[in-house]
């Protein structure tokens, strides 16, 4: 029941966020309509951040306690995090093409995001190769912890190289219209709901896989 309510809420949230981004929010004077993609961009990067924090915490607890549910949580959260981060990178590129005149630049934030993306892809490679092997699942947890600790250092190190900083909102970095802020918050809330629904479903799927594996073993 709880699950169904969440599902409905997420659905409504997504519709509302589309409305907020495309119709409710005013057109940004300098960038024009393309700026509207930023609402989704911020929503997805927010979810990716939350997802990776969950991976970090769940991995620590998994190493410490060794209970499978934390391993599942870390794995599923990482998968969805990578999905959302991919969306972040795509929406960012779509925005950058008309504004900066290029799909991609090696600016500190973009570079860090790209490395972040690679780190969690490596995590997924490691974790999915583990299957039911608890030893490898632990290795994946170790990697997740190390990668997370590494992130601030990666960010600092790419800042050592010069880059252009993006101006996201408003002309000359001034205040942003309240409607824009509202649209942004609605998007972030909707993405969070979507994340929770996806995470719960993904965890269920992983549990079912466990159950199937157990049944197969008991058959032999």
């Amino acid at each position: 029941m709880m699950r169904r309510i969440l599902f409905v809420l997420a659905f409504i949230g997504i519709i509302a966020s589309v409305y907020a981004a495309f119709i409710y929010a005013p057109t940004e004077p300098q960038m024009g309509h393309i700026q509207r993609i930023f609402y989704f961009h911020m929503g997805t990067v927010w979810v990716a951040t939350v997802a990776f924090i969950i991976v970090f915490i769940a991995s620590i607890i998994y190493l410490w306690k060794g209970t499978r549910k934390w391993d599942i949580l870390a794995y599923c959260s990482a998968e969805i995090g990578v999905l959302f981060l991919t969306l972040t990178i795509i929406t960012g590129s779509v925005w950058a093409k008309p504004i900066w005149g290029t799909w991609w630049t090696w600016d500190p934030q973009l570079t860090t995001t790209f490395i972040l993306w690679i780190l969690y892809i490596v995590y997924l490679v490691l974790r999915s190769s583990a299957g039911n092997d608890t030893k490898k699942a632990k290795y994946a947890a170790v990697f997740a912890i190390i990668a997370f600790i590494d992130l601030p250092l990666v960010y600092l190190s790419v800042r050592v190289m010069r880059g252009i900083s993006p101006v996201v909102f408003g002309p000359g970095g001034g205040g942003i219209a309240p409607e824009m802020m509202n649209a942004l918050l609605i998007n972030m809330a909707a993405c969070t709901l979507l994340f929770i629904v996806l995470l719960l479903e993904r965890i269920d799927l992983e549990r079912m896989k466990d159950a199937v594996a157990k049944l197969k073993l008991s058959q032999n």
Partner: peptide
């Protein structure tokens, strides 16, 4: 190398 290289980026850069 797959595990190690992305992690040691700060070392290499600095």
């Amino acid at each position: 190398p797959i595990l190690l290289f992305p992690i040691i980026i700060p070392v290499i850069v600095s």
